[in-house]
Design a protein around this nucleic acid. Structure first.
Length: 884
RNA sequence: GGGCGAUUAGCUCAGGGUGAGAGCACUUCCUUGACACGGAAGGGGUCAGAGGUUCAAAUCCUCUAUCGCCCACCA
């Protein structure tokens, strides 16, 4: 029946099984009218990316949920695809060009975009192939890319809709500028990090002294920005400066006359209480300048060199300029002091370059009107986060949401669909390209140069991948999706925005019901996994060593409500071993199926009733755990049941009955096949390959068969509940304890496995006596007991070991098995040695001189040693007593 | 400044009011016809600290310490 090798080899098994799934068409999504579907969209990985541990975890979670729903009989749709990843992809392609000594400007916009598409075609399939290696059951026949033509249409539709509603506007504002990527970033694309820096105190002379005061001192962390100062602000209630408000300061190095203004934003207790205001390079200063009508002078170029507005410093890099400005002020005697000062520095989330707050013309989305219904949807439970505590994080951000800067000064991406007529000055947004001005019919029409933030298109993923804005039956059937699983770092960047846009464009229907925020995978040292730091672990390598199932299950074991995972490869080792255990337990069943006739399970023994009852409990726990996304608990339940109950006890018990033949054999075969079948179904979502590889060979009743385990029926929890049998569970728990106690005696006396033992049970009454003779009889072989007797009046035979288990007293006569003379002699000598040692330490520890003068560590060490010796002594004495 | 998470065996972590658990590591024994990626038996923990609630606290509450993460217009 079976020529299965004795070790499970994932590399041998996985490929053909995956191919068979594809060939069987089991991944495809079908619309089955009247049947409730289950749909999930994958968080689209960057097209430049390759699989990392975060993907491995996230996609295992999704696959577990999707496979289980598929087995429940629901039409499933797991959307797969990649994100065009504007900045990341543009950077990659620019790097490639740089290696050839070229820049994107050498190519020009069209050729550069062409090069990006080439990159996408060359590398875009990498990560999809890796998902396949993991066994992910996505619908690969319907792969999406966030720059597909239909997707582009969706993006334009959204832009124009919001533009027409006035929700998208253009404005000159302070934004975060990455001088290396030379683009604007949104607030949440900036990573803040505290850095050691300085606070420079600068003296600014007054044009005309006021009441004997001829200068002000201001403090700054970025002295080079003083070139763009256009006023000085003090708090209106600050007595020290009240008289100076309205007077003029002459800006050093520049010579500009700038006013002193009073503004409540200023904290009088910080620094000198007077603030230099640089409206074009600081958001707060911008606000102050707006309130007081001060000039806004941009002193920086796009590459963070000083602009012509910086006069003598023009052309210098921002850090060179800082040094020069400080040195020049110092030379003029205007540098009052320099303090050490740690402050937060913003960095580009794509290239880690320090960003500049920079005044420029950008496109924004007015988020407040969009946020309100999205807050309400979470508040009233239409969208539920798991774990729930993330909802507070969501609320906090959403309730304080700020306008979203969506324009990027890049070439790769969705070009902003706004057109300008140079002839008549008309401008407007359009879903389709415009050749002629709709107002003056001039052909002097040009499109906005900027592209949209990648996340602007990503936010449409749940419905754009269903064919929106075209009316599409898929949209009606599969939207809203059921679950979204993702890492916490894109909660704002992506999840919140999907809820907002999903509701806006789908009649208020939320894009998904449940949001799983899974733990972040850190390395063993607790540090972020990063390819560039060399602290990453490659999932593909893990799969080579442990199999896809080993990696998947190992990850699932580590998913708890915790927010971090310190990745533990040991869990993968146990999971790989678990695959092997499943494989071999199945081999055992196959090897014992000669003459098997399929049939429903009919329990004959307490062990049968026990394993079926345990199976019923397992199915209930697994179902419930998957419903509440408690993957770690589900994995542990599966592991414990299969290994510690089914393999360690049921299979061991089955061996004798398989040997016995006849009705016993037929019965146990059916239970074995039934339990294995059901267990494989429960295990399949987490370990799809090994379970599928075995399941197909199981000789099942016609009604239980399916083309593949992945489309076989999920165990019927309610139906299995009929096997629930607390009495059998209690009985077997007691048997396990009794057998364990007897085994412990065997182990203690080194009784060889083949040496049978006699067991004498002293029982408290008839019920117990019956239990021993009927139930223990079935298990006696597991304890190596060859004969046993039970009675209320049986005495302890001489030279017996005693086992006390579950209220039973069991004597094991060891006469003729253990050489008592020799054993007693050995133990006697051991006792003498131990006693002498103990006495020595006791003397030492009662010597007051020693206690007073020896170091505490030594005393502690000796005490511990004494305790250890006393313990050993007790054990030896107990053994001597047993032998007496 | 605000919020969240963590602190349990040598290591990595579950658990979450009434018997302190797993995997790995360690010790001893076992190549027995499923599996040495295995089996059996063991050793090992004041559950971060201090208070409180309770018949009962590792578990609930308060505070403290340490570590980590997120948010915030920290000139």
């Amino acid at each position: 029946m079976s020529e299965l090798p004795s070790a499970y080899d994932p590399n041998e098994v996985e490929g053909p099984i995956f191919a068979s799934w594809i060939d069987g068409g089991h991944f495809g999504s079908r619309i089955v009218p009247g049947v409730r579907p289950y749909s999930v969209v994958i968080p689209p990985p960057n097209v430049t990316g390759s699989l990392h541990m975060g993907h491995a975890l996230n996609n295992t979670i999704q696959d577990v949920v999707v496979r289980r729903q598929r087995m429940l009989g629901r039409p499933t749709r797991w959307v797969v695809g990649t994100d065009h990843a504007g900045i990341a992809t543009q950077n990659k392609v620019e790097q490639k060009l740089a290696a050839e000594g070229k820049s994107r400007h050498d190519l020009g916009r069209d050729a550069f975009i062409e090069a990006c598409w080439e990159w996408r075609h060359e590398h875009g399939a990498t990560i999809i192939g890796q998902l396949k290696a993991m066994g992910c059951s996505c619908d690969y026949s319907d792969e999406w890319f966030t720059m597909d033509p239909t997707y582009q249409a969706a993006v334009r539709k959204v832009f124009v809709a919001w533009f027409d509603k006035g929700l998208i506007y253009r404005g000159k504002r302070i934004i975060n500028w990455c001088p290396r990527c030379t683009t604007a970033l949104s607030d949440i694309e900036v990573e803040h990090e505290d850095r050691a820096g300085h606070l420079w105190h600068l003296r600014y002379p007054l044009e005309v002294p006021v009441g004997g005061v001829d200068h002000l001192v201001v403090a700054t962390t970025r002295p080079e920005t003083m070139l763009g100062d256009t006023c000085i602000a003090v708090h209106p209630d600050d007595e020290r400066y009240r008289a100076l408000v309205g007077s003029m300061v002459v800006l050093p190095l520049v010579g500009r006359r700038i006013p002193v203004v009073a503004d409540a934003h200023v904290d009088p207790s910080f620094g000198s209480g007077a603030v230099k205001v640089t409206p074009a390079h600081d958001p707060n200063d911008f606000e102050i300048s707006e309130r007081h009508g001060c000039e806004k002078i941009n002193i920086m170029n796009a590459d963070a060199t000083i602009s012509v507005e910086g006069g003598a410093y023009a052309g210098l890099d921002r850090y060179e300029a800082r040094e020069r400005v400080v040195a020049d002020l110092d030379a003029l005697g205007l540098l009052v002091a320099v303090d050490d000062h740690a402050h937060s520095v913003g960095q580009c989330y794509r290239c880690q370059t320090v960003v500049e707050p920079w005044l420029s013309d950008q496109w924004f989305v007015d988020m407040r009107p969009l946020a309100e219904p999205a807050i309400e949807a979470v508040r009233d439970g239409r969208v539920t986060f798991h774990p729930k505590r993330w909802e507070n994080v969501y609320f906090l951000w959403m309730e304080n949401i700020r306008d979203w800067c969506i324009s990027r000064q890049l070439w790769w991406g969705h070009r902003i669909p706004v057109f300008y007529c140079d002839a008549c000055g008309w401008s407007g947004a359009s879903e389709h390209d415009i050749e002629r001005c709709p107002k003056c019919t001039s052909k002097a029409i040009r499109q906005d140069e900027d592209v949209l933030d990648t996340w602007f298109s990503s936010q449409l993923w749940p419905f754009a991948t269903l064919g929106w804005p075209e009316s599409d039956e898929r949209l009606d059937y599969f939207y809203p999706t059921n679950m979204l699983s993702t890492a916490r770092d894109i909660l704002f960047l992506w999840v919140a925005r999907m809820i907002m846009s999903g509701m806006y464009f789908n009649d208020g229907k939320v894009p998904f019901d449940d949001v799983i925020i899974h733990p972040t995978v850190f390395n063993a040292e607790g540090r972020r996994m990063s390819k560039s730091l060399g602290t990453g672990i490659d999932p593909l390598e893990l799969m080579e060593h442990y199999g896809a199932d080993g990696m998947r299950f190992g990850l699932m074991l580590q998913v708890t409500g915790n927010q971090d995972i310190r990745f533990s490869e040991e869990k993968l080792i146990s999971s790989r071993n678990f695959s092997n255990k499943i494989w071999n337990a199945s081999r055992f069943v196959f090897m014992n199926l000669d003459g098997y006739v399929p049939g429903p399970p009919e329990p004959m023994t307490v062990a049968d009733r026990w394993i079926l009852s345990r199976l019923a409990g397992l199915a209930a726990r697994v179902g419930e755990g998957l419903d509440t996304y408690e993957f770690g608990e589900v994995a542990r339940s599966l592991y414990d049941f299969f290994w510690n109950e089914f393999c360690d006890w049921y299979i061991e018990l089955a061996k004798g009955r398989l040997q016995a033949g006849g009705e016993q054999r037929a019965s146990v075969q059916r239970i074995l096949v039934f339990v294995l079948d059901q267990a494989l179904r429960l295990l399949h979502p987490m370990m799809p390959f090994v379970t599928e590889g075995i399941w197909r060979r199981l000789p099942l009743l016609e009604a239980d068969r399916a083309a593949s385990l992945m489309v076989a029926a999920w165990p019927d929890t309610a139906g299995l509940a009929r096997f629930t049998d607390p009495a059998a569970e209690r009985s077997v728990a007691r048997l396990i304890e009794v057998v364990g106690g007897i085994r412990a005696v065997r182990s203690r006396y080194r009784i060889p496995p083949k040496q049978g033992l006699e067991a004498v049970f002293r029982t408290a009454g008839d019920a117990e006596q019956t239990w021993v003779t009927t139930e223990f009889g079935q298990m006696s072989a597991l304890a190596g007991v060859s004969s046993f007797s039970a009675g209320t009046d049986l005495d302890k035979p001489p030279h017996s070991a005693t086992v006390i288990a579950s209220g039973l007293e069991i004597y094991l006569p060891l006469e003729g098995i253990v050489d008592f003379a020799a054993e007693a002699l050995r133990l006697g000598k051991e006792r003498e040695g131990l006693s002498a040692d103990a006495a020595k330490f006791e003397r030492k520890l009662s010597n007051e001189g020693f206690l007073a003068k020896a170091s505490p560590e030594i005393i502690e060490k000796d005490r511990a040693k004494l305790a250890e010796i006393s313990e050993q002594l007790k054990l030896v004495e107990a053994q001597l007593a047993e032998l007496a």
